[in-house]
Write a protein that binds this DNA or RNA. Structure first.
Lengths: 212, 212
DNA sequence: CATAAACGGAGGCTTGCCCTCCGGATATAA
DNA sequence: TTATATCCGGAGGGCAAGCCTCCGTTTATG
């Protein structure tokens, strides 16, 4: 059939996806596939059977990451009493999901004509935009702060630090730094100087920053 | 002799150093040396004559970066009326110098027994510590914020964003995000939740984070 | 227990990078 | 201007890493 995967096969596929997410996050989109297999505890042959080439694996990781991000944003929006709280909650979630670290590195290795991918992207960005708009409306989020700022800051924070910190320490540091950053995003926190004009919209981000 | 380098040779050496700083920043300590030579507009042979191996080049880049950082920190401390201003000024300078992006990736590829290197490191960290201490004393810098926080945040901000942004835009974004972050570092800016215990001291940083 | 499904990893192949070496170019002093 | 020490460039042999296929072995499942 192809419809029903054998139980072990399905389990392995998920392990591959998780390992790929980690490894791509750490080493970029051209990380060795053999390391992904190794980290998933599987042979390289298994990886290639499930994902016939790098492109396919990349695509699967991106789709998965976008879906998780969309869910996290929607949940944050729904379960937070105030919009700024939703923003904070979403950004923290995005760090743990490792969404942001994967997306950008992979975005330009992936076929943007692919309708499924476009749809996933749109479904992920919509609730983010909603959160940011709401926070602006609420006048809790500094008005100069754009979608691009939020997105790129997540990218920065999600990127692993160089050197070898214990894994959990790295994670805690990212959340800590995010908390400090969030304090600066609030209306009223004291800015040293004005922010200039580098704030990028969602559209800017989709147009700029593509490698090809 | 050995003392006097021919004029063109000296010029080329500096171009190599600058190119190395850029390339190591972008691609890490194992970046291809041939790209460094190419970007310096020189042949690979020239690079190898000046720096007999990767280690030597790395060492030169790190020494240079540490010296620049030390100078920037000292200048910031001296020329700013208040300590928080000095902190802000130093951090912005560190971004442009690309110090922070190079140091950590290189630190663990480099021989820490080398006394010249230890000295350079100490001379670079001392004025940073002075700035941070002064800002704490002034009660303008949030007391929980440590040396490790400042250092690692510079690392985060100095790291190039994925995708291809125009070079200058990337730079402006980093400074923009630093400004927002600085607002969050000020005493009094509204924190979402407490920061936990992941603040690293200078000593922590020197012990942890080394790969070998 | 039979067999379809899935696994693992050896190995041939390609690619990219390292680093040396030496013929040619260039600066500098006389 | 010329002689010569100094410096440059990049071709190329060698090596290591990663890609991906292929097939003998193992495992789930009815």
């Amino acid at each position: 059939m192809g419809r029903t995967l054998r139980a072990d096969a399905r389990r392995n596929q998920e392990q591959l996806l998780a390992a790929a997410r980690d490894v791509f996050t750490e080493r970029g989109a051209d990380a060795p596939l053999e390391e992904i297999a190794r980290r998933a505890g599987l042979g390289i042959g298994t990886l290639y059977r499930r994902f016939p080439n790098r492109q396919a694996l990349l695509r699967a990781v991106v789709l998965d990451a976008l879906a998780r991000s969309a869910a996290a944003a929607a949940a944050a929006l729904e379960e937070s009493p105030d919009a700024f709280g939703a923003l904070a909650r979403y950004m923290h979630a995005a760090l743990d999901i490792k969404v942001a670290a994967v997306i950008p590195a992979l975005m330009d290795q992936v076929d943007l004509e692919d309708p499924e991918l476009r749809a996933a992207r749109d479904q992920a960005t919509a609730p983010m935009v909603a959160i940011i708009d709401a926070a602006h409306a609420e006048e809790s989020l500094r008005p100069e702060v754009t979608f691009g700022d939020v997105g790129l800051m997540i990218v920065r924070l999600a990127h692993p630090l160089p050197g070898s910190f214990p894994a959990d320490l790295g994670r805690r540091l990212a959340h800590r730094h995010l908390d400090l950053l969030l304090a600066g995003l609030r209306v009223g926190s004291p800015l040293e100087s004005d922010l200039g004009d580098a704030g990028l919209t969602l559209e800017d981000l989709q147009v700029l920053g593509r490698t090809r």
